[in-house]
Design a protein around this nucleic acid. Structure first.
Length: 490
RNA sequence: GGCCCGUUGGUCAAGUGGUUAAGACACCGGCCUUUCAAGCCGGUAACAGGGGUUCGAAUCCCCUACGGGUCACCA
């Protein structure tokens, strides 16, 4: 029995980013490895930017990935609610506790004033810190400011001297001098707590034992530690995960292509592939095996093998891993996953009959070995569902514009027409015999035939393709190619 | 700018004082083959720079450079 309790606490201001997904994954792996609890909490204290749609989107992305949680939205739990916006009383209580003990105070500076001072400080080359001017306001001064109509915020009083050390499980001890910390806001003028405060209160209330989050939070940590101390609460362990960067080493953003879990899903990536790839960004398994199932990752996961270095994400490797899983996965599952992609291209109807399903399944089985995403499956499968395709121009030059090309196709067509059964063996046998009979290499029949049937120079094995397409379609497409060649010649 | 973190091939990365400095993706070549993939075999390619410490440093210390994070009534 383990008492490990970790949480993933996204703010619902957008979709689930792959960085966030990686953080969620590491927390999940850590919890499962230690047989602890994985908790989801929605940090929605930013009233302007938080949306319920975003929260739902993040939750559904997590579900799609298969990262299940023991406590949180939808499942509840003993330490709820799991939306910060529903826990306002808790923060208020804690803030007043600090206020009463002189560890926090009201500040009446307006955002405009603060902004101005910040800019002045920056321009003068000074650190843009809060100057502490409301630190020692008398009762009279406060009343006066309030009469001016100012709504105060509550600030936390940073101890003047000393340093706070963050004992990071990944980075070791990191110390921060209190001189660089300023009295930060814990409750905004609208009564809502800020992140640094709310998350500490919740982590305490939810009995979180380990905080695994992205490195961008490292410099917030001393402030949070000071709050734990002011509240006389034990500290959780901290571990700051390396960032995930775009190929140009900048922060990942839309201009770098897909960044959200949802987008990867829509481009035809499989959840297990994304998870496997994400696990490898910042963590490494002990052996040389990089293709790992979720349970294998759980077994092996350890913070000791998490890197300190920011990682640049590489879509090529993700795609390679996806290709692997695409081929390993159960064919029925892949078929079902591929259908929406075919529908998007209007290759199959909304309603799929059983007969059509079986055809699709065969097509998917044939093309998936040579592509890496579901999107590519649909692309590669196109000509199995429509006659409306054109011939690859290079292919035409290479295979149709050779002397005798039309004759070869004509001979092929006639030879296929005579076939009683149109299965793999008979079709292949017919072609081999034909090539011997007319004295050309098999390839000289195969290549133009492939182009005639698919419009492409590459694809699945020709005989499989012919059989799947069926005798009628095969002959029809050969005729079309023969006509095409003669129209070009004239 | 202050503070903090980091720096091993193009990318992910192993490595914790003595290694021919792993492995994977990508790239290149070969084999296989009806094409393209896959698969198999092989190849190119790295310890940011400079000082120390040490018999010996990718590994420890310092400096420089570079990259990233943070400094909000955002999280």
């Amino acid at each position: 029995m383990s008492n490990v309790r970790v949480r993933f606490a996204p703010s619902p201001t957008g979709s689930l980013h792959i960085g966030g997904a990686r953080t969620a994954l590491f927390n999940w792996l850590f919890a499962r490895h230690h047989q602890g609890k994985f908790i989801i909490r929605i940090d929605d204290t930013d009233l302007e930017r938080s949306t319920i749609e975003s929260a739902q989107e993040i939750i559904s992305a997590l579900k799609w990935l298969g990262l299940d949680w023991d406590e949180g939205p939808e499942v509840g739990g003993p330490y709820g609610p799991y939306f910060q916006s529903e826990r306002l009383k808790e923060y208020e209580k804690a803030a007043h506790h600090l206020l009463a003990r002189g560890l926090a105070y009201y500040c009446y500076c307006t955002p405009e004033e603060l902004q101005k001072r910040r800019q002045e400080a920056l321009a003068a080359g000074r650190a843009p810190r809060y100057d502490g001017r409301c630190r020692h306001l008398s009762r009279e001064e406060r009343i006066k400011l309030e009469r001016e109509g100012r709504k105060p915020v509550i600030r936390f009083r940073i101890p003047e001297k000393g340093t706070t050390v963050v004992n990071d499980l990944i980075r070791g001890d990191v110390s921060f001098d209190h001189e660089i910390l300023d009295d930060f806001i814990i409750i905004k003028s609208n009564g809502i707590p800020t992140y640094n405060f709310a998350c500490v209160i919740d982590d305490i209330k939810m009995k979180i034992t380990h905080i695994l989050r992205a490195e961008e939070h490292l410099s917030n940590t001393p402030r949070q530690i000071l709050i734990y101390q002011a509240l006389e609460e034990p500290l959780p362990a901290f571990a700051h995960l390396p960032m995930i960067l775009a190929p140009d080493r900048s922060k990942l953003s839309k201009r770098h292509g897909a960044t959200s879990v949802e987008e990867f899903r829509d481009q035809g990536y499989l959840p297990e592939a994304l998870l496997n790839y994400l696990a490898l960004l910042g963590w490494s398994p002990e052996g040389e095996q990089e293709i790992l199932s979720l349970s294998e990752m759980v077994r092996q996961f350890s913070l000791e093998r998490v890197a300190k270095t920011a990682a640049i994400y590489d879509i090529k490797k993700l795609t390679w891993i996806n290709g692997h899983y695409l081929n390993e996965a159960d064919l029925d599952r892949v078929t079902k996953l591929a259908i929406p992609f075919l529908q998007k291209r209007k290759l199959v109807p909304e309603e799929i009959s059983e007969e059509l399903y079986h055809y699709i399944k065969e097509v998917v089985g044939l093309v998936r070995t040579r592509v890496k995403t579901l999107e590519e499956v649909a692309e590669a499968a196109e000509y199995f569902f429509t006659d409306d395709f054109s011939y690859d121009e290079k292919g035409v030059q290479k295979h149709f514009q050779q002397p005798g090309a039309a004759e070869i196709l004509k001979a092929a067509k006639e030879c296929l027409e005579k076939l009683d059964s149109f299965d793999l063996e008979s079709v292949e046998k017919a072609y081999r015999e034909l090539s011997a009979a007319i004295g050309v290499k098999t390839g000289e029949i195969i290549h133009p035939t492939r182009l005639a049937l698919s419009g492409r120079t590459m694809g699945p094995g020709l005989f499989e393709m012919m059989v799947l397409l069926g005798k009628e379609k095969t002959i029809q497409r050969l005729s079309r190619a023969i006509d095409f060649i003669s129209s070009r010649e004239n």
